[in-house]
Design a protein around this nucleic acid. Structure first.
Lengths: 203, 203, 203, 203
DNA sequence: GATGAATGAGCCTTCATTCAT
DNA sequence: GATGAATGAAGGCTCATTCAT
């Protein structure tokens, strides 16, 4: 009993700190954010934070992980099993809408997910945003499915096409989550992206 | 006379510092890079740098500006005056190739242009990479021209389509400048992007 | 009744903490040892320790006191009443052996007794190890007895000779408790110290 | 020229900091001493210290090294070449006197050299004061010489005897440098140690 | 009585910036 | 003009100590 309660309390505290960290990191970025900023936001002593996270980097890692988990749910509900261009189109719309909705609900997440780059890593892979990579992999599955089923171009370079499509979706998300982003604007983006995906730019 | 010589010398010194800054910032990122790193690379006293730039931020601003100028030359040579889808396609290829070539010649520039960071700006606009914005504006001109001339879809949302296309191009550039990036890979990307732009993904 | 039981329990707890403290302090030294280290060793909450000791310094004081008490038993059993150089020699051997045995039984005690540290005391006297002082006083009594009985040099400066002899004994103890310290090594030290005490170094 | 001057200035500054560090470390001990303490003593910014020493440990290492160098000069002037017990005795007196003089001139050095124990090292060797070890080695050479020349006991365990004698000398030094230590007291110690070394304690 | 969550003083260390030489 | 010595703000992190539960 005691354990359950305390485990829960610890989890709640970790979550509170995580949320404050998301706010602060999204406002100031990794380097400009200080542990004290996070503690002040929660009106707790800064030493307290170290009871829950080993160090600043660990907090940031937790932030990134938590965002990725949130994003992952979107694709988990969308298996690569559509059977026609129309279905595929609708699926892309659903995915975009849910992503946009996540980022609109919490603009802090958008700023981190879309621009997170704890620099100084020579490792190229790290320079590619983790959230981008996550979606790229999934989109590629959709591509494979579409080509297999025959409703997508067979000559497609699936890996590359997936990354291009991902970049389009992310660009939409950026626009949707950063700018004023009323419903009208969002649908303008969504419509345009679908049109390009389906038929390109040509007249 | 003396003045001319000295003005030139100052300009040369500023340029040397700029180049060193590009190297250091691209390797370490804004926050992890130190003024001393830049000075050491040039084997000059780090106090000297402050005779040419007001402070660290000013150096970084100069770096970004210089990169933008370099990128701007690409579009300056490509007026929005193509007359057919084919010509347009060829123009996009030329632009992509020149951008890729710039970034391959100087990978330092790529890392900064594509991931430029000093975050912590509440100003939303700043979060959109300056180089991205620059191209977006130009691409939009190409779109307008294409729609006006009738070889691009009239129902196109030009501003949005421009940003989507820019995102595709930049994704290509990232791939080209970061990854192994042999000629074969680059043309795979270029081909795919053209196909999507022209005819979408559909079979 | 209840009181007796509880008093006993408190004493037992204090002793447990003391033992853990001896272990930790001997391994890490005063400053590097943390209250949490001691608590963890006992698998108790670190707050609990403060119910038994006022603060960290008080624990260390108790440690030193406890060690001194242990060492004191050695000399308490050896009254300064020997009647010949031979008896005296044998007494010194007994004392050394018992000290060595204490320190070999519990190497933790050796590390603390011989190097006890919380420095930063301006008080000069504190710089002399408490255990050293304890023995010095006793050895001086042996000296007095020996001179009185006529088997030790009458021109001896008893206080000083006592400290010199103590330093020899402690050096032996250090060697015995720190280094490999097999029985052979210990007797080499003991033999040499006796020889020096009795007849010096000369041929 | 410029270089020579600057090298000299750097050396002087390092020396100033070293001296301040010796003062502070001797008063407070390694852990209780803070970089700020040292800087305040010199009335300089604490950041300045890091221009001359990598970190706190490096300062302490320099302190220990400097003390050891000072001590080493004492034995360097006293080769193990005496030819009689009398000469040997005189040599020991000279060495003791010079050591005592060093420590009396600078009591700070004494406190560090005689009680320095940067704890937390499991490595046994480190626990033995470096200055003690240094002298031990030399004294052993004197022993060997004395036994070879026949004026010291042939059955002597040279290594052990050397450490025992060193401990006597160091005890003398402690007394001389810590306590009131007028000339009279010092000679009482010196006389007693010589007597013990030569003829032991017996009547 | 026991616990461990919370606290914040305190410390080391880095580095942008200034300025005397 | 160039230099680099000096500075101190700033920030990450530890841990002894307190106290509500």
């Amino acid at each position: 009993m005691v354990n359950v309660a305390s485990v829960e309390k610890v989890a709640r505290r970790k979550e509170e700190i995580l949320q404050a960290a998301i706010t602060i990191f999204s406002e100031k970025g990794y380097y400009s954010a200080s542990i004290a900023d996070i503690a002040n936001l929660l009106k707790i002593g800064h030493g307290t934070i170290y009871r829950y996270y080993k160090n600043k980097q660990a907090i940031f890692d937790a932030v990134v992980t938590s965002i990725l988990q949130k994003l992952a749910t979107v694709v988990q509900d969308e298996p690569p099993e559509t059977n026609s261009l129309q279905e595929y189109k609708e699926q892309i719309v659903r995915i975009s809408d849910r992503l946009i909705s996540i980022f609109q609900d919490d603009q802090r997440i958008a700023r981190i997910a879309l621009y997170e780059t704890p620099e100084g890593n020579n490792d190229t892979a790290n320079h590619v945003s983790a959230s981008f990579l996550l979606f790229s992999k999934f989109i590629q599955e959709y591509m494979r499915n579409g080509v297999d089923k025959g409703f997508l171009r067979p000559n497609m370079d699936q890996e590359i096409a997936a990354r291009i499509v991902t970049s389009m979706i992310f660009e939409t998300i950026k626009a949707a989550s950063m700018e004023g982003s009323d419903e009208v604007l969002v649908s303008r983006w969504r419509d345009e992206i679908i049109q390009i995906m389906i038929g390109g730019l040509g007249a």
